[in-house]
Nucleic acid binder design. Structure first.
Length: 806
RNA sequence: GCCGGUGUGGUGGAAUGGCAGACGCGACGGACUCAAAAUCCGUUGGUAGCGAUACCGUGUCGGUUCAAGUCCGACCACCGGCACCA
């Protein structure tokens, strides 16, 4: 009897219901059973709904999760919602709907969309960062930071739109202008909450050593943390007791320092204002700089701007000479000491600045032509014009100079980090309230644990206030509270936390999501943590991924989590582009909704296509035709049911070899995230089965087991149709037999001087020595080398024979 | 400017230094059909040749090697990120 045509809509919802009803994917804490924790970055539930980019990561780790279950692991594969954030807030403002309702609706939409794709999430562990039962613990962890002195206040610039009179996120600043009104964005200094991530810079760097993160992620985190070794040196300001401190990694070039540059915000300027002849000019320049972003200030191509500080000179401690002081906006107060010594002979930026302002350029390392350009490739150079360092190699000079300066008592070796502390407060509504009270007598007072969560109050308007304060500042009945310590009238902190807060620890909450006493029980954390495999986007490498490592390292130091690092392994997926090869976005009109795909080709085919379309870690344009090809492949698998014999043994040795090779390759490829080649291998199996015209149940089962993590619905359906016993998700992952991985004979290429001339069959177990001795004597090989002298012969077993002839 | 990534047929892509183009998509031809769709079977890097075959071919230019898409050096283009790494 012919099997009914492949129609996924007749069974995909059925199996989704079955898995749910039977709690097949519910993760249970079972000590003694090996656990495996798969994690994907929980989505931001935007109003636009799921697009085909989301499921790429989900499907990949769903394959791993399903494979691990078949391998006997107790798998935790959770899902949740990273739901605080700007788009929801802006939607709420525009449409006068409470952001909590917007979030609820979006989450329901997302969940329904995800469920149609058949992911093996444990939905009973869903977390939502905007749920008070969740953010209670986000607040609680913040208070731990505060208690331990890692949360502090500092003056920081925010983006400010003078027309809208609101603070803006970087996201809302487009080309230096306000996204809403187009007015030029300026900076406004605000007292902000900071988290001292820099105190963990070294630990965050060291921790990377032993983690199984893909190399680009490690490299990016290392570069972001940016450790550099050098020294701080004090330059005397001539005629004063003031010293100007700089940081340099190139003490060896100090004899070439012909001027210095300060950040326009450097405090020394105001301190010595009365000695500076052009102080007004400097203040004006500082004002202009304040309106630029750091990135604009850092732009290399732009023309160098700067102003000389007239009336002050510094003394170069190496040469003893007086050198001029300048300010320029490319020097940022936030890195190093906010001042540099300029060595124009050997630094490109300094060279250009010196040229632009006609400052002296001195060569201190021989070899370049400093008239034409800065000579920067100096690591193996020899010092000149450098007093005591003359004739030394750069590396030695560096050490010698640092020792010398230290001896003079004006320098200290110093390790500097590029990493900056984390601005942790936002003047927004839709975020976790910071649970602190400002008391005129007691100062800053944290809320007591029993008073958490501090709920977001209901408000009528979510707009930030025109003073730049959070909308919460306008709700006096919420703001005015008695001090938790002394009972005097006091005010609540009105800033909220950034969206990164909730996502910095959600993987811990998944371990024990309904706990009302702790953020998660020790037992659950000890069992499930660390995350065994975390997949996400490259764009989160230096923010979310680093922030969450920071939180975890901190909690570990407090003894609240056992694992030192949260994630054992980190991989990344590439972006899915629109059919036109451009980034998918509403404005480009090239967004593809997975619902449409489920309707047309089914969830399984969609999953197969997402995994087959190209290299997992690279950006790939979507192709509707390609997606239909995936459906065609599953259709061919489905119709194998009509070619089925009851036997278990393969019909030929070569087929048996193919199946064993496939079991090995598919398993290994899944682990290496080479899903595309794993699926290609399964397609090859199917093509082979069609060639034979009929297959055995044993061979068919092997294919279904390999395919089931990718196309779970169809594989369950066929397994049941054919009465193969039980459910396919309960079957063990297939094993291959080493003995059947190769045929007796294998075809190799025969090259003459590197060009392929013929092919021939050789025994597959022939080793290199035997091959090189015997194969050139074969008559068909001799034919190729007739009349020529063989001077060398290389045999690569099972691959090729190369004869070098004259 | 810095950091990271990517350049392979008409197209998405494959390839532990060892036969470039697996597996798809598209296209073309054939079978089935009254016809179409679906399906099945075949062909499909370029040039020359009826053909066996020959030569060329993985962004560019050099190098190492018996052998280079892969390793090394210099460069070009594109994509992503950025807080001038002092």
């Amino acid at each position: 009897m012919m099997t009914a045509p492949y129609d996924p809509s007749t069974f995909e919802p059925k199996w989704q219901q079955f898995w749910e009803d039977n709690q097949v994917f519910k993760a249970k804490l079972e000590p003694g059973k090996p656990k495996y924790y798969c994690l994907i970055e929980f989505p931001y539930p935007s109003g636009a709904g799921l697009h085909v980019g989301h499921p790429r990561s989900n499907t990949a780790l769903d394959i791993i999760a399903r494979k691990r279950r078949m391998e006997g692991h107790n798998v935790l594969y959770p899902i949740g919602w990273d739901a605080f954030g700007l788009p929801t807030e802006n939607f709420a403002i525009a449409n006068h709907i409470h952001p909590a309702k917007v979030t609820r609706d979006n989450v329901n939409h997302f969940r329904a969309q995800l469920k149609r794709l058949g992911f093996s999430f444990d939905y009973s562990r869903e977390v939502d960062t905007t749920d008070p039962a969740y953010y209670k613990w986000t607040q609680w962890i913040f208070l731990k930071f505060y208690e331990h002195g890692l949360a502090y206040k500092a003056e920081m610039p925010i983006n400010w739109c003078p027309r809208c009179k609101i603070g803006l996120a970087n996201e809302e600043v487009v080309g230096g202008a306000c996204e809403r009104c187009g007015h030029e964005v300026t900076h406004k200094v605000k007292n902000q909450w900071m988290l001292a991530i820099t105190r963990y810079a070294q630990k965050l760097l060291d921790g990377l050593e032993n983690l199984d993160f893909i190399e680009p992620v490690k490299a990016q985190q290392r570069n972001w943390i940016g450790r550099s070794e050098g020294c701080e040196v004090d330059f005397q300001i001539a005629g004063t007791d003031e010293r100007l401190r700089i940081f340099t990694t190139r003490a060896d070039t100090m004899f070439g320092a012909t001027y210095m540059v300060l950040s326009p915000e450097h405090p020394m300027i105001e301190k010595l204002a009365d000695r500076i002849h052009n102080i007004d000019e400097l203040r004006k320049y500082r004002e202009q700089a304040a309106n630029k972003s750091d990135f604009e200030r850092a732009e290399m191509q732009k023309d160098k701007t700067g102003v000389e500080i007239k009336g002050l000179m510094a003394i170069n401690p190496a040469t003893g000479q007086q050198i001029p002081l300048w300010i320029s906006d490319y020097i940022l107060m936030g890195y190093g000491t906010g001042a540099v010594m300029a060595v124009p002979g050997h630094d490109e930026r300094d060279w250009e600045f010196a040229r632009a302002f006609n400052l002296p350029i001195v060569e201190v390392v021989a070899g370049g032509d400093i008239e034409k350009e800065a000579y920067t490739d100096i690591d193996d150079g020899i010092l000149v014009n450098s007093g005591l360092l003359n004739g030394m190699k750069v590396k030695d000079a560096q050490e010698a100079m640092m020792d010398h300066l230290e001896g003079l008592g004006i320098s200290k070796r110093k390790v500097n980090f590029k990493l900056r502390d984390w601005v942790f407060s936002r003047q927004r509504y839709w975020g976790e309230p910071i649970p602190l009270v400002h008391c005129p007598d007691c100062g800053i007072v944290p809320l007591k644990e029993e008073d958490l969560p501090l709920l977001l109050p209901d408000v009528d308007s979510y707009e930030p206030t025109d003073s730049g304060e959070s909308p919460l500042a306008a709700i006096t009945e919420w703001v005015n509270v008695p001090c938790p310590t002394c009972g005097q009238p006091a005010q609540r902190e009105t800033d909220t936390m950034p969206q990164w807060a909730g996502s910095s620890w959600y993987f811990l909450r998944y371990c024990d999501p309904h706990n009302t006493e702790e953020f998660a029980s020790k037992e659950a954390l000890d069992y499930w943590m660390p995350v065994d495999w975390y997949n996400g986007g490259m764009e989160h490498t230096t923010l979310h991924l680093l922030y969450s490592r920071f939180w975890h390292l901190f909690l570990h130091d407090l003894g609240l989590v056992s694992a030192p690092e949260p994630y054992k392994k980190r991989t990344s997926h590439g972006m899915i582009l629109g059919e036109n090869g451009e980034k998918m976005s509403k404005s480009r009109g090239n967004v593809i909704n997975p619902d449409v795909l489920v309707d047309e080709i089914g969830a399984d085919a969609f999953r197969v296509y997402e995994m087959f379309m190209g290299a997992f870690d690279q950006a790939i344009p979507w192709s509707m035709a390609g997606a239909r090809g995936a459906k065609r492949f599953l259709d061919r698998v489905w119709r194998l049911q009509d070619m089925l014999d009851a036997d278990n043994q393969s019909y030929s040795d070569s087929l048996r070899v193919l199946i064993n090779q496939s079991i090995k390759k598919v398993g290994e490829d899944f682990e290496r995230m080479k899903f595309n080649t794993a699926i290609a291998q399964m397609m090859t199996m199917v093509n082979e089965y069609y060639d034979k015209g009929h297959i055995t149940a044993g061979d068919f089962k092997a294919l279904l087991l390999l395919l089931s993590p990718v196309a779970p619905h169809m594989c369950e359906e066929i397994w049941q149709n054919q009465n193969f016993g039980g459910y396919i998700h309960q079957q063990p992952w297939p094993a291959f037999d080493e003995a059947f991985l190769v045929d007796d004979q294998v075809e190799i290429a025969v090259q003459v001087n590197g060009k392929v001339r013929m092919r021939m069959m050789v025994p597959s177990d022939m080793d290199k020595q035997t091959g090189e001795k015997e194969l050139p004597n074969r008559p068909e090989v001799q034919e190729q080398t007739a009349g020529k002298q063989v001077i060398k012969c290389i045999y690569v077993p099972g691959r090729l024979l190369n004869l070098v002839v004259k």
